Simulated assay, not measured.
Amino acid sequence: MVRLKVEKMGCGGCAKSVTRAVQAVAPDARVEVDLGAKLVTVSGASVPADRLAQAIAVAGYPAEPVLAAA
């Protein structure tokens, strides 16, 4: 599971764009969007977090992987 912070994401249209960007590089991924927290959770993908973040950024939404707490 990968979590990404997407600060510019603020509406349902943004969420759809981010979801499409993730699924373009990880078609089988399950994408959950939390607009309030500006977080995207991706599960079921074998794509590295930095590649997912790059795909989201190309769609116009800079993203940063969120490191899991130890």
Score class of each variant (00 low, 15 high):
3 R>E: 15
70 A>S: 15
64 E>K: 13
48 P>W: 02
44 G>S: 10
52 L>E: 05
65 P>Q: 09
64 E>H: 12
6 V>K: 02
60 G>F: 07
37 A>I: 02
40 V>P: 08
32 E>H: 01
65 P>F: 05
66 V>E: 12
57 A>N: 06
23 Q>G: 13
66 V>F: 13
69 A>N: 11
69 A>H: 14
67 L>K: 13
57 A>H: 12
16 K>R: 11
42 V>Q: 03
10 G>D: 06
57 A>L: 10
1 M>R: 10
15 A>T: 01
33 V>T: 07
31 V>D: 02
38 K>V: 04
44 G>Q: 03
19 T>W: 03
70 A>N: 15
52 L>D: 04
49 A>E: 15
55 A>Q: 03
15 A>D: 01
20 R>P: 07
24 A>N: 13
43 S>N: 08
48 P>Y: 06
67 L>A: 15
60 G>T: 02
20 R>G: 11
20 R>V: 15
40 V>E: 09
9 M>H: 06
65 P>E: 07
32 E>W: 00
63 A>F: 07
9 M>C: 02
60 G>V: 11
3 R>G: 06
4 L>A: 03
54 Q>R: 13
18 V>R: 02
18 V>A: 02
50 D>Y: 00
43 S>Q: 12
31 V>Q: 06
68 A>R: 14
6 V>F: 08
5 K>S: 14
11 C>W: 11
62 P>T: 09
27 P>D: 08
41 T>V: 04
11 C>S: 11
63 A>R: 03
59 A>R: 06
44 G>V: 07
19 T>D: 07
57 A>Q: 08
9 M>G: 07
15 A>P: 03
45 A>H: 04
6 V>M: 01
39 L>P: 00
52 L>M: 14
43 S>W: 02
32 E>R: 13
61 Y>P: 08
54 Q>L: 11
25 V>R: 14
40 V>Q: 07
6 V>C: 02
26 A>M: 12
29 A>Q: 07
